[in-house]
Design a protein around this nucleic acid. Structure first.
Lengths: 231, 231
DNA sequence: AAGTGGTCTAGACCACGTC
DNA sequence: ACGTGGTCTAGACCACTTT
């Protein structure tokens, strides 16, 4: 006989195996926690941990009273780590560099003002270049709400990037992140040292402290950038 | 006095509040599980669940014996849901459409063969268009390993997209997913109905059944596509 | 050696959603 | 109404890592 199951990881593996082997085909109702606990000879809490983890991974659908079913369309969930740019560069074994390009205080364009709900108040605008081995790695275009982070008014963002400074000075409660692609316009092309029209991978992020927007940033990665993760 | 904490979510909120309020600044060692359990008047398992969740979110660093610390660089973790294209379109309230453009069996280009480790064996190649309200939504370019999924040889992929068919017929054990940006070449531009050179958001995925590659797909989204998620 | 998180157990009560 | 998952508890043992 095969080795007995003792841990929640063991239960998870066995359940995963049965799904994969089509013992429990897509859409099938699987036994409830109590029955599985009895079958495997473990406590229900152990089964719960295993099934809950698989549900979070999108492999199972769980509903009270209705029971647990194998997902029909296993929605792939990709978890991306978005580190500070400096660490991202260093993780690739390259030397990190930083150069602030501009720092002004001005009313933002309409889309930024709308997204941040700051009305017509002027915001801090920072534009900076992040380098890997002295070559452009990513361009940061950021708007900061000084009404929330007053200390930002006294920070030149020359020795330290806003990317990093904000992490230490402006904790956020929640936020939104987006990924898209855009053609480099003339400014981005000049700053990143690529051709106008090059396809750039863009990450944008909007963070909040409760009901107040802290900052909105767009990171334009140099051409060829690829963000990856496991499934 | 404020309301008593009873649930692991409650513990998590309180811990989050203390971090946010700098009661526990970045890098600080926080009390151990037993002490927190006593303070909050809950069982240790409840505290464990709360702290474990925060650690998974990147807000805490936990190590046996060393204890639990507030993360210095809270690595933002963004979890993206990658649904089937049909559901993605329907979720936007649009009518889904599908059109297969090509289906051949041929040796793949070197980069595909290398990534899939299929040597010089011929693979199934499918190219198809996904539509939203009759307008191009995304272009699918896929290579399937018929050595693993023999049934794919008998499927024309006309009535159902490979995107969806494979989910039902080819469970995978693990995979890799990547995001990038690319300029539309002439074929993509023609198929998506956009200008040559347009910046396209590209999702690529490689899935495995244990040690054998099942399929490799690139999804070219029509210009302007943005993938988003909360933080 | 000792402290900390990681996990398991057995039992209990509860919330929710379906029937 | 009632079955299912969601969670809490109190206690225990274990694994890992640092001291």
């Amino acid at each position: 006989m095969t080795e007995a199951i003792r841990t929640w990881q063991g239960v998870m593996e066995e359940v995963r195996r049965r799904i994969h082997a089509r013992d429990w085909p897509p859409g099938a109702l699987i036994p409830n926690e109590a029955d599985l606990a009895a079958e495997f000879g473990v406590a229900r809490a152990t089964v719960n941990r295993a099934l809950r983890t698989l549900a979070e991974a999108g492999l199972l659908d769980r509903r009270r009273k209705a029971g647990t079913r194998v997902a029909l369309q296993p929605v792939a969930k990709a978890t991306l780590d978005i580190p500070v740019l400096r660490l991202e560069v260093e993780a690739r074994g390259k030397e990190y560099g930083y150069r602030r390009l501009a720092r002004t205080e001005a009313p933002p364009p309409d889309d930024i003002a709308t997204a941040m709900q700051t009305g017509d108040a002027p915001l801090l605008h920072i534009r900076a270049l992040h380098l890997a081995d002295d070559r452009p790695y990513a361009l940061e275009d950021r708007w900061i709400n000084p009404g929330v982070i007053a200390a930002a008014r006294d920070e030149p963002f020359i020795g330290i990037s806003a990317n990093e400074w904000l992490l230490a000075h402006a904790p956020y409660t929640h936020g939104e992140i987006g990924f898209s692609a855009t053609n480099a316009r003339a400014p981005e092309a000049a700053e990143l040292g690529c051709a106008t029209g090059s396809a750039l991978f863009v990450l944008d992020r909007l963070t909040w402290d409760h009901a107040r927007a802290i900052t909105r940033v767009a990171i334009f990665y140099a051409p060829g950038h690829r963000m990856r993760t496991g499934l």
